[in-house]
């Protein structure tokens, strides 16, 4: 082989490497696009061909997420107590001088107490609303980068949860289940900007539609558009779900929030009320999923009469 042909081959090889990578990228981009088309087309009718793959990944990853979450839970609760509670700060400082056994007890005790209080609250929520609830913990929160506000629960179809079940906490409406695998369920929060909930003003019984603003923190608000604008909503009015029949996606009579502001738009001749939700979406832990009475479940159900079975 002459030097010249060797050189030309070297140049060709050098060019071929990026070219084959670009070809591969084009292939992968096409594959992604095909996947999106297949999923988006099926997604509207609720039975996407991708769903079995989702269920399979959820079955594998769901329990791992739940395990990782319960491992960091005590540390997170300790951090909250130190940040939010002045006298706890002093208490923790003294305890830090004591032995590690006491420290670890301090770390887990507030969590246990909080959880007990939450279970109590959920039991009374079941009693107040008259629905049967499956208790579940929030183990994963979707990042804002995905532009939908969703959370993962550590219970799925084996606990009796299915898509389009209502999710409540002790304070009120959380959202609805959009997808459930054997051991996990994905919940679209009511505060998500894509979520639409039928609401009813408790004082006038007028109905309307609530949309979220996508913010989980203190700025999380819902806007209420009333169907009939004859009677304006008042600041302080409570809003409850109006219920979409057959128990899904939203059952009736769950408290959603309180009217904090009423604004009028002269151009649209309609009034929009801003609702502050009762639920703190930034601090979700124990929630209840509404299921039909007598549902077969592998965990204990909280019955409407407050009993745990």
């Amino acid at each position: 082989m002459t030097a010249r042909s060797r050189l030309s081959r070297l140049v060709r090889d050098g060019r071929d490497a990026p070219r084959s990578a670009a070809r591969l990228l084009a292939l992968l981009v096409l594959a992604s696009a095909a996947l999106m088309v297949v999923d988006a087309r099926g997604g509207t009718s609720g039975d996407s061909p991708i769903d079995p793959a989702r269920a399979a990944v959820g079955t594998v990853v769901g329990p791992v997420e739940a395990g990782a979450n319960s491992a960091v839970r005590p540390f997170r609760a300790l951090g909250d107590a130190v940040r939010t509670n002045g006298h706890l700060r002093g208490r923790v400082a003294t305890l830090q001088e004591q032995n590690s056994d006491l420290r670890s007890r301090l770390a887990t005790e507030p969590v246990d107490r909080n959880r007990l209080a939450e279970y109590d609250g959920l039991t009374s929520a079941a009693h107040d609303t008259g629905y049967t609830l499956v208790p579940a913990h929030v183990v994963g929160i979707g990042a804002a980068q995905s532009f939908t506000r969703t959370v993962t629960l550590d219970a799925g179809t084996s606990a009796g949860i299915h898509a389009d079940s209502t999710v409540v906490s002790k304070d009120g409406l959380v959202g609805r289940v959009v997808r459930a695998t054997r051991d996990s369920a994905t919940v679209l929060l009511a505060v998500d900007s894509q979520s639409v909930v039928g609401g009813r003003l408790a004082s006038t019984m007028k109905i309307g539609f609530l949309r979220g603003n996508g913010s989980l923190g203190n700025g999380g608000r819902l806007s209420l558009d009333l169907v009939d604008n004859a009677v304006p909503p008042q600041v302080g009015d409570a809003v409850v779900t109006w219920g979409s029949g057959k128990g899904g996606p939203y059952v009736a009579g769950i408290p959603i929030g309180q009217v904090t502001k009423v604004s009028t738009s002269p151009r649209e001749l309609s009034r929009t009320a801003t609702i502050k939700p009762y639920v703190d979406f930034g601090a979700l832990d124990l929630v209840g999923v509404v299921v039909a009475k007598g549902t077969h479940s592998d965990r204990s159900l909280i019955q409407a009469d407050g009993k745990v079975q």
Binding site: L25, S32, A33, L35, I50, E65, G140, G142
Partner: peptide, 21 residues
Amino acid sequence: LAPTADHVAGRWALALAVVGY
């Protein structure tokens, strides 16, 4: 596909494939 995801599948696949390239 992992739980908490509620978007059309393939969107992150596309984004990260391009970044990888």
